[in-house]
Design a protein around this nucleic acid. Structure first.
Length: 112
DNA sequence: CACGTGACATACC
DNA sequence: GGGTATGCCACGT
């Protein structure tokens, strides 16, 4: 399994995440079949296209992965707000906006 | 091949 | 909530 195949799988999984929802790096890696490879997800997003919904990926604790006040952090907060996700003090309420397990079935179907 | 680094995660305190 | 420590994996030096 080449590294490129893994990142394409990650981006594919990310493309399934609906607007208004967020997922953590670890959860995304897990759904893509790559448990424990959250850091690889970060590398993928860095080299990904602008069209990819990178802003829906946050840390497991709900915080944005960038330093507060940074350009990318502000952009991500803006994009999430546009989609209806409330970002309070650099943090997102995963309990409400997090990707629900029920959507996992959608992924399973798409994998066929 | 050892080491440091990074858009991470988990366990503790 | 914040801070520290450890584990993790891919990559460049």
């Amino acid at each position: 399994m080449t590294n490129k195949a893994l990142e394409s799988k990650i981006l594919k999984t990310l493309s399934i995440v609906p607007s208004g929802c967020v997922v953590s790096y670890g959860q995304l890696a897990d759904l893509a079949g790559l448990p424990g490879r959250a850091r690889l997800v970060g590398k993928c997003l860095k080299s990904s296209q602008e069209t990819t919904p990178w802003h829906r990926v946050i840390r497991s604790d709900g915080k944005i992965a960038f330093p507060p006040g940074s350009e990318l952090a502000e952009e991500q907060r803006t994009l999430l707000t546009i989609e209806g996700v409330v970002v309070k003090k650099h943090r997102v309420n995963i309990g409400i906006f997090g990707w629900k397990p029920s959507l996992y079935t959608l992924l399973a179907e798409l994998e066929q």
